[in-house]
């Protein structure tokens, strides 16, 4: 157990050299490498964090955009639906108006046709009835019937209005009497006598036959005439038929 002080000093120097060598070749490089690595890892982590933040921001942006788009789409859908609804209503209204117009026209046309038909029916019916009546009267009528008619005519003259009687009194021209059949002389004489007795003695009476009268008598004095025949009855019939049809037409209209 000896201490060689020369060796001790040499070892001290050796150790100090070793400290320097290891510091130069071991600690310093290793520490630097580790620090650099830590720095790089920290940088990478920072970058990753920044990127993550960026990504999340972008995601948020996209989400906002998507929501905006969805909102717009909904709005557009609602708008389109409203427009479609409005258009539909408009079209329906138009269609209804057209239908109403068409119906109105059709109804008018139908009413017109009906009226035409009734008019024609009335006319034809009247014509037919007249024709039948005329034919019947024509078949039945004869001089005897006419004589009765003339009797009746005379009765009428008796009760005729004053105005006509005055006209006949002051009549200067010839008095013309139309009949459907030719009157025989006795009847003529009777008529002439009646005229002379009632109105004026110097009255001139002329007789003539007019088949259109059917059965009856017509007295013509100047611009005035007085008559009595079956035509009047027939005209009366026609008027009544008109009235009857008129009363039927409204009820027929109500059925539409």
């Amino acid at each position: 157990m000896q201490i060689d002080w020369i060796t001790v000093s040499a070892q001290i120097v050796n150790f100090l050299i070793l400290v320097w060598l290891l510091k130069r070749f071991l600690y310093h490089p290793v520490m630097r490498a580790m620090e650099q690595r830590e720095q790089r890892i920290a940088d990478r982590l920072n970058k990753a964090e920044a990127r993550e933040q960026q990504a999340s921001e972008q995601q948020q942006q996209y989400q906002h955009k998507t929501e905006e788009l969805e909102r717009k789409r909904d709005e557009m859908l609602i708008k389109a639906r409203e427009q479609a609804e409005q258009g539909k209503r408009q079209l329906l209204d138009e269609a209804r108006a057209i239908v109403a117009e068409t119906r109105k026209q059709w109804q008018q046309q139908a009413a017109q046709e009906k009226a035409d038909f009734f008019n024609r029916l009335k006319q034809e019916t009247a014509e037919a009835i007249q024709a039948i009546a005329r034919k019947a009267l024509k078949d039945l009528a004869d001089a005897g019937l006419e004589e009765q008619l003339i009797e009746k005519f005379i009765e009428q003259l008796k009760v005729a209005d004053k105005d006509l009687q005055q006209t006949l009194h002051h009549n200067t021209g010839p008095l013309r009497i139309h009949t459907a059949y030719e009157l025989d002389s006795t009847v003529r004489a009777r008529l002439t006598r009646f005229m002379h007795e009632h109105f004026s003695a110097d009255i001139q009476v002329e007789y003539s036959t007019t088949p259109e009268l059917l059965c009856g008598i017509l007295l013509v004095s100047g611009d005035r005439q007085l008559g009595w025949n079956l035509n009047e009855y027939l005209d009366d019939l026609s008027e009544r038929m008109d009235e009857a049809f008129s009363s039927v037409r409204p009820s027929a209209k109500q059925e539409d």
């Binding site: 070793l18 060598l21 290891l22 071991l26 490089p29 290793v30 690595r37």
Partner: peptide, 27 residues
């Protein structure tokens, strides 16, 4: 003592130098 101390120093320095001359700073 001195000679073997030098040997130890040389070994330590050599190993350190060999390893640390190409240091990797990556992972």
């Amino acid at each position: 003592t001195i000679v073997y101390t030098w040997l130890v120093m040389a070994l330590l320095t050599l190993i350190s130098w060999l390893v640390t001359r190409r240091m990797s700073t990556g992972t």
